[in-house]
Write a protein that binds this DNA or RNA. Structure first.
Lengths: 341, 341
DNA sequence: TTGTATGCGTTATCAT
DNA sequence: ATGATAACGCATACAA
């Protein structure tokens, strides 16, 4: 038999409600009784039965706001949240809102509106900004839990769910090193080498990949960083130029989005066979490129799983009061090749 | 609000216990009332609340027998089962038993003993044998659910939890093809090319890998199949011989166990740098070899996860009566390199 | 300060 | 054939 409130109450010779008061620090219990109960709890190792708690809470409606950005990852994270909601046995009012990437003003407005709405929790894909951090800090102080997904920010949010960008970059570097057998020319496709387009993850991937190659594969030379500025046309044109000007390129690492544009350039240059291409994420267009063997391998960040996990942790916090046992919570980086699909 | 028995009872103007009888086909309900209740259920879409059911069942003890084989995978599967049990809120009597690999007699005996014991369910890693299949069939007919893990058998077991050996072999083949840039000499380390040591998975990996290479990389030549006969010394010696006799070997695919023996031979031959090595599973000795860059990549079958899943599906069947929604249930094949660890 | 009573959803047993 | 009731573990409003 499991240890329940009843077990403890009987041992202590008190009523279960008294035990409950001790467990939830509600006061109204004499010092001696409390001490006794606590020692029994310690001895028997009480753990609240989630089924009981779930049942008790089952009238309550939880209101959760999901504030995302209109980035490529957005629909997948949203999908994960929806799927996890279907598996949960509580009534949850989910309100989804999406604001433009890098539009701090717009996201601030959303945060304020949400704050007024008195939701029970917020799942947030934040823009990189001090002002967003301040707004989140204010909300958290009102005891509204905030979980960040995909991208993190400084402050006391309940936790962050995402992936380890440095680790992902290193894995990509290792794959490239193995594919090139440690030598040859490679290029990196990225957004911008200056801060014109500040995208934290792409940034990290670019610099960490370069560092990894430098430290582990000295005979691989990164001959060019192609800047696409988050624009598919530019990305396509610049990649085509690269392939023309550097005909003996062996490896291409795509740190940014717009992978289909890169793929088009590679295919049109007839270089699909001879170049090893490594990219990130598993969007449909990327999977197509993997199937057609233009992209050799992609590092997936489990976006759907990120959504699921974020939602699950939020529910667990609201219903059971359990804090996430780690922070940040990182998804495993999936290495995908054609045969994994 | 969610749809509960109460919701339906009120709509139908009957007592909840009547609704319950209909849902569980217990009889004792008039045709008209039953039809009415069924239509309401259809309309509102009743789904039983697991918290309620769990609570109701929470007195019951479940007895689950875990019958494994003393293969490399055994401790990991067992660990997964234990971990999942810790997460579950029922009293479960787990009895672990392990019999020698390929010792049909011994496993039959275990099965018979378990059958007499009147357990509620069996988690089984079966030997490949008609007699085992027959015994399982007999047990299943007694309404004792059997879930097979890691290795499957023919018959009406509740479901199988494992991994897709063909897919794993293809992924390994793809990795090898990419590492070798589509050309060069490769070797396969396996148990036995005849049926002297019949190990289904190793067999599948060997033949499917060969097929994949043949079909996708015609310029990769598999120059030798090294037979280790499940013996570390033989495996070591034969691999060493291979490396000596085929000095320009570029790739080594390890389909069997004893990866550390292969690794030792490679290291001692000073070939760690220049050969691409692909193996299976993620045993500590393999992870060590990946860390030291002797093995380049390994395909993990998520053994711990197999155990967890098998146990979870068993509990879900026993407690909630839910059948696994797929069969077989395959774990994802994880591609692991040094930086994934 | 402590105990009582009630309800959450499901199921099993017993009463009508 | 149908209804009433108790029990599972937890939480809480309320009574003593």
């Amino acid at each position: 038999m499991r240890v329940t409130l009843k077990t403890i109450a009987e041992r202590a010779g008190v009523h279960i409600s008294t035990v409950d008061k001790v467990i939830h620090n509600r006061g109204g219990v004499s010092k001696e009784v409390e001490a006794n109960i606590r020692s029994i709890i310690k001895e028997l190792g009480y753990k609240t039965n989630p089924a009981g708690r779930a049942l008790q809470r089952s009238g309550k409606r939880y209101r959760i706001a999901v504030l995302l950005l209109d980035v490529d990852a957005q629909p997948y994270i949203a999908e994960g949240i929806r799927r996890e909601m279907a598996d949960v046995n509580f009534d949850v009012d989910l309100s989804f809102h999406t604001s433009p990437f890098m539009d701090v003003e717009s996201q601030l407005e959303l945060l304020e509106k949400t704050e007024e709405d008195e939701v029970d929790g917020i799942i947030l894909l934040p823009n990189h900004s001090r002002r967003i951090e301040a707004a989140v800090q204010r909300i958290v102080r009102k005891n509204i839990p905030v979980i960040t997904v995909d991208s993190d920010l400084a402050g006391d949010r309940l936790c962050h769910v995402g992936h380890d960008a440095v680790k992902g970059a290193c894995i990509a570097g290792r794959m490239m090193g193995l594919f090139l057998r440690g030598e040859g020319k490679a290029a990196v496709i990225t957004n911008s080498m200056s801060t014109e387009v500040y995208h934290d993850q792409v940034n990290t991937r670019t610099t960490e990949f370069a560092r990894f190659i430098r430290e582990n594969y000295p005979d691989i030379e990164i001959v060019r960083y192609v800047e696409g500025f988050e624009d598919r046309e530019i990305t396509y044109r610049e990649t085509a130029k690269l392939l023309q000007e550097e005909p003996d390129i062996k490896g291409i690492f795509i740190a940014c989005g717009g992978v289909d544009a890169v793929g088009r350039a590679i295919r049109e240059a007839g270089k699909a066979e001879e170049t090893s291409v490594v990219s990130f994420e598993e969007y449909p267009e990327i999977l197509d490129l993997i199937r057609s063997r233009v992209v050799d391998c992609t590092i997936g960040g489990n976006l759907v799983e990120q959504g699921r996990t974020g939602f699950r942790l939020m529910i667990e916090y609201l219903v059971y009061g359990t804090m996430p046992e780690r922070d940040p919570v990182y998804m495993d980086a999936k290495i995908l090749v054609k045969e994994s699909l």
